[in-house]
Design a protein around this nucleic acid. Structure first.
Length: 594
RNA sequence: GGCUCCUUAGCUCAACUGAAUAGAGCAUCUGACUACGGAUCAGAAGGUUGCAGGUUUGAAUCCUGCAGGAGUCACCA
């Protein structure tokens, strides 16, 4: 690639001109800003001190020393040395890549040690909401992103299917449910169970109020409320394997799973393996014993086991309760080991919200103390919260945005917008429905994924369902237009693989598009390193925008020069492929027509 | 209170490891449809990058302090 060649030649020039030692990799070549002439830029400031010359002189001397057939010239502005790349180089680039539909993407080696990426990890007491959507979309697209970069990826989900929260739903259902089922009520299973979770909270609060009116203080009221006491005993019975409770638990969980599967399918996400906490929650205890034997953990007088992290600037962390049962951290230690052994994982990635940053720093530290040299393979892909215009989402205050409702709402908006434009008459009813779904999810996914994962983001339900500007549907639309041109070209018998010899020079806009395409592999690599689908999203938008601008004032199908026409259709084809590939990383489908 | 993260145009977001005049979209204003798909394009306006110092040839980016916001500091998960 041209950048590497430049680095190498510049490195040699620095040595021969000024006796400066610089590794080729250490020389940063950046793309020239579009206001300036040229394609690639070297900033010479870092070398002027050692060279003992003015920045302009250094730039000129290096520019003169660089002799490459691909470089057609250079100019110097202050300390910036701008190289121009010859048209023939860009032309050959198009020629070599035009037929390659996977351009920029690498195929993973299925035998390689995998990156195990956990995401979603829902509780089974309520349906998925907007926060889960960000988690699921991130998890899925990061998996796609790593795979596109040639990484073998295993996607896993750890379902939190047991605990006091499930018992609350179960208890409320027994009390107030009258045997209601998804079939009898027509509700989705997860929504039904969620309804009784809310129901529990309502009655529980009423009980607390009553107890406080009877003179108890708030804390004891919370503990002594009959509903809470019964939920606790239900959890105990569950842990003792009580058949009646277990049967109910399995029944209600199965409703929830059916509901989740539907939502996952609509979101287009999936997993290679699903773990259930009811199977894994006992894990990790042997590790604690091992830690005690090694002397890195200690037992307090009441029998509880702790890890002392004060030397690391943190405090003490509980690992086993005094009754010997495990806590969240213990389980995570266990599942990490399980996963490491099971997959021979190259890396363990956890897509979990940033409210658990502390948990994961502790997890890594404790794994290290237990002597696992793979502790630093644990990577917490921490993401920010999704906020609403009127503040935070709170399930109890009814300010959550339900995932299913949101998708349905988006689909309806997509339908309205499409009918307004009325260009999909040639599609069957079935195809139209599919199109609305694709557009709805394109808008939603793109909106969420274009934001840097680490940052909190604001989701405005009213305004975010936008199909103009920097949005998924804009890119989808661009793709559909391009495909339309390529179809016409093919109908005219244009051979996409045909080498062309252009009589005229490339226009700036054409060059821009090619440069953009040329940048794709490095963009994918960089985005994979940063676990940032946002970089891919912004890349796709940039490309689509460049293309639209080019398309606006370039009559492609009317071009009388057949070579020029062929070249432009080739360019269209490459852009369409690239848009499809990059959107695929985001989990967004691009339609042929819309 | 301790620790971690955040603060960029009216709003939502960009800016790769420090680099040229900090970029898009939305909203506002102006212009372009006899057209290969106008869900588009061209243009205008909009900024002391929270504040104050420091390092550097060069800082939104690195360091220190301050202000504001969020998260966390459970024998919950």
């Amino acid at each position: 690639m041209i950048v590497n060649k430049l680095q190498k030649v510049i490195s040699e020039s620095l040595k021969s001109l000024y006796n400066i030692e610089a590794e080729p990799d250490s020389i940063t070549i950046q793309t020239t800003k579009k206001e300036f002439e040229g394609d690639y830029t070297l900033v010479v400031f870092p070398y002027v001190k050692q060279a003992r010359k003015s920045p302009e002189m250094v730039a000129n001397e290096i520019g003169n020393a660089v002799k490459l057939p691909e470089i057609s010239g250079f100019n110097v502005i202050k300390g910036f040395l701008n190289f121009s790349v010859s048209d023939s180089y860009w032309l050959r680039f198009v020629e070599e890549r035009v037929g390659d539909t996977s351009y920029g993407m690498t195929t993973p080696d299925p035998t390689a040690s995998p990156v195990v990426i956990e995401y979603s990890s829902p509780n089974t007491n309520k349906p998925l909401h907007l926060g889960h959507i960000r988690n699921n979309l991130l998890g899925w697209s990061v998996s796609q992103l790593l795979a596109a970069n040639g990484t073998n990826v295993k996607k896993v989900n750890l379902v939190n299917d047991r605990g006091i929260h499930i018992c609350k739903s179960m208890l409320a259902w027994l009390r107030y449910g009258n045997g209601e089922t998804p079939e009898s009520s027509g509700m989705k299973g997860d929504h039904l169970v969620g309804k009784y979770y809310v129901e529990f909270d309502k009655h529980y609060k009423a009980e607390i109020q009553q107890l406080m009116a009877d003179g108890k203080d708030e804390e004891t009221a919370k503990k002594e409320a009959p509903l809470m006491v019964e939920a606790q005993s239900m959890l105990k019975r569950w842990e003792d394997g009580d058949k009646e409770i277990r049967d109910l638990w399995e029944k209600m969980n199965s409703w929830v799973y059916a509901g989740f599967d539907e939502t996952y399918a609509r979101l287009g996400v999936g997993f290679d393996k699903i773990y259930y906490e009811s199977n894994t929650y006992r894990l990790g205890k042997e590790l604690v014993q091992k830690g005690l034997d090694m002397g890195v953990l200690f037992r307090k007088e009441d029998g509880s086991v702790w890890c002392d992290l004060t030397a690391d600037g943190l405090d003490q962390k509980l690992l086993l309760r005094r009754d010997g049962t495990s806590v969240y951290m213990t389980q995570d230690l266990g599942t990490a080991l399980l996963r490491h052994n099971e997959f021979g994982a190259e890396q363990l990635v956890y897509v979990v919200g940033n409210e658990q940053d502390y948990h994961f720093t502790v997890l890594k530290l404790v794994l290290g103390k237990l002597g696992f040299d793979w502790a630093d393979k644990v990577y917490h892909l921490s993401y920010g919260m999704v906020e609403l215009p009127n503040g935070k989402m709170k399930s109890r205050e009814g300010t959550v945005v339900d995932a299913d409702d949101l998708i349905t709402e988006m689909e309806r908006t997509a339908e309205e917008m499409s009918l307004e434009h009325g260009k999909n008459d040639e599609l069957t009813a079935e195809q139209q429905k599919h199109l609305y779904h694709i557009l709805a999810l394109g808008a939603l996914k793109y909106f969420i994924l274009k934001v840097d994962p680490t940052k909190n983001m604001l989701f405005n339900p009213a305004e975010s369902i936008d199909f103009n500007g920097n949005t998924g549907p804009f890119i989808q639309y661009t793709h559909a237009r391009i495909r339309s041109i390529v179809r016409k070209g093919e109908a005219e018998g244009i051979d996409l693989g045909k080498p062309v010899t252009l009589k005229s020079a490339l226009s700036d806009k054409e060059k821009n598009i090619i440069k953009n395409l040329y940048d794709l592999p490095s963009t994918v690599r960089q985005a994979a390193q940063n676990y940032s689908p946002a970089m891919i999203a912004n890349y796709a938008y940039e490309l689509a925008k460049n293309f639209n601008s080019f398309y606006q004032d370039t009559p492609i199908m009317r071009e009388p020069d057949s070579d020029l026409k062929t070249f432009r259709v080739q360019l269209c084809s490459m852009v369409a492929n690239t848009l499809r590939n990059t959107m695929n990383i985001l989990g967004i489908e691009v339609p042929e027509r819309m």
